[in-house]
Design a protein around this nucleic acid. Structure first.
Lengths: 350, 350
DNA sequence: TTGTAGGCGTTATCAA
DNA sequence: TTGATAACGCCTACAA
């Protein structure tokens, strides 16, 4: 037996309209009445019915995020931080967060977006792992649906987004590795159409060029953002007749797999072969050996995405916002090289 | 301009009732009409309005989960796997998953539960980190609201739940450590009212008793499930005049902090001091040194919770289900002790 | 087999 | 300042 405004109205001998207005802070209601209504609502345990409110007002006070899962059970600590950031900021903005999983580029993914957006299930969406040509971006823009994205796609459409200077960061990372004595650097990237793959690989390539290093075509490999994928790609590289001495990975999760591969192949990581990641998930600090990585504030980025999105949702004004984060190089043992040792806290900010 | 069944009806010269029935697979509609309706819906891009449907039918096809966050930015890889399991199974069951964050025991937590449950925002809830006396359990049971839980509370109420034989597992873990030569074992637990704290600590204590080891009261410490908490508790233990030689941690995340503390205090982990965790998050395999842990299938457990919950939601039958998982001991270098070395794959199933 | 009509709980537009 | 009342989009008796 749930309580509705009708029950409150009856009890107080008021119209439901008056009750509704009192509860929603409208000015045209006497302070006295408002007080009585609020009191009654309180003690009767009234909670507004979201469905009814949503049907009437056309908004759900809910934001959506669709987790791009590669397959069953490929948990990535990046998402632990990311989702926590999303939920925290969503809650802070008095919204709810709706989540589901779908493999990128599948029918299920399309169905999920369509049903949420067209069915008014959410007021806005956060997207990540943006692709260069991304149908999600086109679909959302076409429907004039509020969304914010991690990375900007290349469809020529504009939307509020968060990005990182990862190209420069990878460029710099290569120099760091070169200074440490790693001259045969390989890259383990992600799917070819993703923005970050594009950015990070080109940063890597330009870095290698600038350092005047050799770059064999087979040293440019692609995985799928999973540690399993990183593991396989790394094995492939290490078993090459001309094996590289550095495995520059597109994400920390990928690097975790590369670490495992290097261990299996009995390489002394940090000396014989360097391994590096990107994201700065805090598990990277605990790996064996600790993983050199480009640290970005994942949690803060997620909060920012939600903040940008809420701005869009609340006032439809088309303020284009682009928030840029700069990665910090955390140089740890996995890229020690010929250096004697690292700064005391095992980290070096560049 | 969103499409409603009314639009379809108008276009086809049908009543909205007929359209509704055709779309929802009712038998009393001619195959011909059904075909026409489905076709029209398809090409007009009709998507049902969830709010309207929910208002009418009283259910939201949505499940809820409230992430118990300790504070900002305490990402735990456990939740990465857990949430992925929740979302995957939720999607598989054609439900959506609603998520928010709230610190355990706060007003915000209560408000979230009340608003979701009483406001019909979700059809069922998954709860975890169950406390011995848990107001959430009482609240949900009182409202006859479907829910499933990770661990059973001790309120005397019954509900479908997933549990692990963690008491026995900790008991066994102590023996394993004792055999490896660690005789001064300390425990780093969680908040005193949580079920798992109770279970795991008592398993630890009984294990110590059975092994005939010394147990100083100051070796029984409590943290808060964060690595930061584990770090502080571990420092406290290592700095004791009578310092322990094993840090048995209630979760992997806690153990990550303990590893860091032991490293800072220059202990040779695995020889001078053992560190162990619980959960088997896959990052535990990559720590320095690799972390001995009690592995449970977190992803599968999350899926099971959702499966149980959907059973409840769909047919209100009060089948009480209790699914029990048994942890596997993964013995890794962090508890090597006087053993020469570990099995080839660094893991030993007990 | 199809149509009519009432109502789910709210909010918003009128009058009063 | 308050009260009727009409939607919002959908489902479901009941009638045709």
């Amino acid at each position: 037996m749930t309580i509705t405004i009708r029950d409150i109205a009856r009890k107080l001998n008021l119209s439901i309209a008056a009750v509704s207005r009192a509860l929603n802070g409208y000015p045209d209601i006497s302070p006295e009445t408002r007080r009585r209504v609020e009191l009654a609502a309180q003690e009767m345990g009234y909670v507004p019915n979201r469905a009814a409110r949503q049907l009437r007002s056309k908004h759900s006070d809910t934001l959506g995020f669709i987790l791009p899962v590669a397959g069953p059970r490929f948990a990535d600590p990046f998402y632990s931080e990311f989702i926590e950031g999303l939920s925290d900021e969503t809650a802070a903005q008095s919204f709810d967060l709706l989540i589901t999983t779908a493999a990128p580029g599948t029918d299920a993914e399309q169905a999920a977006y369509r049903s949420w957006v067209l069915g008014n299930k959410v007021d806005g969406m956060v997207i990540n792992r943006v692709r260069r040509m991304d149908w999600r971006v086109q679909f959302l823009a076409q429907n004039q649906f509020p969304f914010s994205g991690l990375e900007l796609s290349q469809d020529g459409l504009s939307y509020p987004h968060v990005t990182t200077t990862s190209r420069q960061a990878f460029h710099g990372l290569v120099q760091h590795l070169a200074q440490a004595g790693f001259t045969r650097q390989a890259f383990i990237g992600g799917p070819p159409d993703s923005i970050i793959q594009h950015e990070r690989q080109s940063g890597f390539v330009s870095g290698v060029a600038q350092a005047g290093l050799d770059l064999r075509p087979e040293w440019l490999t692609a995985a799928d953002f999973t540690s399993e994928g990183g593991y396989r790609a790394a094995l492939g590289l290490l078993d090459l007749p001309q094996a590289p001495d550095a495995l520059v990975c597109i994400t920390d999760e990928t690097a975790f797999g590369a670490l495992r591969a290097a261990q299996e192949r009995q390489r002394v990581i940090g000396r014989q072969v360097a391994v590096t990641g990107f994201d700065g998930v805090h598990e990277a600090r605990y790996t064996n050996p600790p993983l050199t990585t480009l640290d970005v504030p994942v949690y803060e980025m997620a909060r920012t995405l939600v903040r940008l999105l809420c701005g869009r949702v609340r006032n439809k004004a088309l303020i284009l916002e682009r928030i840029i984060f700069t990665p910090r190089l955390l140089a740890r043992t996995s890229s020690l090289g010929r250096m004697v040792n690292l700064p005391k806290d095992e980290e070096e900010v560049v």
